[in-house]
Design a protein around this nucleic acid. Sequence first.
DNA 1: TTGTACGCGTTATCAT
DNA 2: ATGATAACGCGTACAA
Lengths: 353, 353
Amino acid sequence: MKQRTMIDQKPDKITITDIARMCGVGVTTVSRAMNNHPDISEETKAMIMQVIRDNHYVPNNSARNLKRSASKTIAVLIKGITNPFFNHMIKVFEKEIQKNKYSFILHRVDENQDEVEVAIELEKEKRLKGIVFLGGQFSHANEKFKQITVPFILSTGGVTSEVGSENYSSVSVDDFKESYKMVDYLCGLGHRKIAIITSPPDHVDVGTLRFEGYLKALEDHGITFREEWAWYMREDIEGFSMDNGYAVTKHRLSANPDVTAIFAVADSLAIGACKAIFEDGKRVPEDYSVAGYDGLDISFYYNPSLTTIRQPVEEMAEETIRILFDMIHKKVKHTHRIFPAELLARASTRPLL
Amino acid sequence: MKQRTMIDQKPDKITITDIARMCGVGVTTVSRAMNNHPDISEETKAMIMQVIRDNHYVPNNSARNLKRSASKTIAVLIKGITNPFFNHMIKVFEKEIQKNKYSFILHRVDENQDEVEVAIELEKEKRLKGIVFLGGQFSHANEKFKQITVPFILSTGGVTSEVGSENYSSVSVDDFKESYKMVDYLCGLGHRKIAIITSPPDHVDVGTLRFEGYLKALEDHGITFREEWAWYMREDIEGFSMDNGYAVTKHRLSANPDVTAIFAVADSLAIGACKAIFEDGKRVPEDYSVAGYDGLDISFYYNPSLTTIRQPVEEMAEETIRILFDMIHKKVKHTHRIFPAELLARASTRPLL
DNA sequence: TTGTACGCGTTATCAT
DNA sequence: ATGATAACGCGTACAA
């Protein structure tokens, strides 16, 4: 009954012990009240919870995590947050993870941080049960992967170079194939001079594979690739952004007047390209056919609506979580799942003649 | 003495004590080596760090946070991540915070969580030095604000109802005024039947103030508001999304043939509206003038480019951090800074007649 | 059903 | 310069 009254100078310094003392019970009982433990009478529990509320007591998560052995939480690591492509996926992750009665942490990793290192740290800190790497590129991560001791999966991320595929799970689309599909489509429309907006050659990211798909499609159509068709993103502007597509196209368009189609390896780049074309007094698709990649919402809403490769984001996200839980429940060791993407032929491309 | 001798299967269970033993030094010394403490010889430090690297030892952050008294970290809390409007701001936050030698945590708070409660928890867990609430609405948060014991600032967020402004700092634009400005502009172009796409009346968010600005501008131009001009976002679709603007316009357009202009309280809504207009066989701005709000990148790239209210996001973000550090360094108690926004008159609106 | 005491992994204090 | 040890706040055997 000796509720500690008034003159609370340090309301944040209150601990479970204080609550216990206020309630005249032991810390165990307080702990039980908070964690919905069975072995506690309803009335003492109610009383304790009331005192907790009255005093605005908030348990310290660091102490909890330190003590707790397991924690039923999944972390999703994402590099940057600029990519609108991930928004849908994150929502699905959240829903699916909650459906499994796990809690969900979205952790952003800085552009210049190593996401695997962050994961290793986070696993210990939060006693994670599983990890999803959303996007990102994993070139030489093999050694580090081994330090992750819980199931993890690469969702939508590329694994370049020789990282043994028996060491991780993944969900993705075949960037090479889908990119090929698009360029093949453009060729089928009669285009033979097709520029591509992609990452600089020394970069290792999704742009690389998509560029190779482009090359192969050209070859299969008997078209000899010309270096001047490779419009590399600028490095001084954020990658895969509208700004970048705009700047690149602005610079390259007039120098390549015979190009009839432009394939951008991201919808945002394609939109930037369109703007540059408009400002040049030209039209899409009458003067230039423009195609994107990703299938963002905006590709539908843009005017003209963008021909693009739609990745089945929702399904991919669901499958990501499904595989992860399969691994957690030891039903399976690792899985690689490649989804087919869909070519959406819309208004930004047209047959040549 | 009951140190683990049993076959180490868990390489992640290695602790600072293990490292100390391996190095033949005390735990204190290891701790010093890791934290760049001055009181340690270069050679022992190098030796210890090598052992740490060899064994892939990673210190447990929960234990660190628990023990550490202070931590020089700022957290930015953001509700949802769908809003592309925040992307620029986050980058600036990160840069500015690092410039101050603090570290930066971006913490996403779930749609159905109370961000202030999350903040209170996080403050203890991470020993935060300051908090930024990015966006969000704070109606009855006054009591809870008091439980936050470190400086915090509301950036770009609305505070509706009577939360004493002496209890927090804030950076924002005057939604009422800027909204008024836009509608006033439309009226100046000769429009008198102007629809608005905004949040449902019972919602408390940025839409509310912007709606009021719209109402006032109409009134000042001697226009009597008609209920049928209020196109409320659908609740079964994500708020402020292109999908929502599209659905609403699709539904309302034909029922209101005499409307000549549409003011959407977000660029994304405006884009959705444009699409619906196009599908109706009409044009922007020839048949309808459409205006947005926010000044997203896409508003420039869209076709036609969107007339909008551009919030000075970079400056606002910089000021947010500046004020926060002023508070941290006790130079100031709290500050409210309102930024002017800029009306960008572009191609999606035109004079009537 | 409830309480006591210990340990989680780290850093801070105070010795040496 | 280095080391032993006491916290940090909580959960949980184990005892009552």
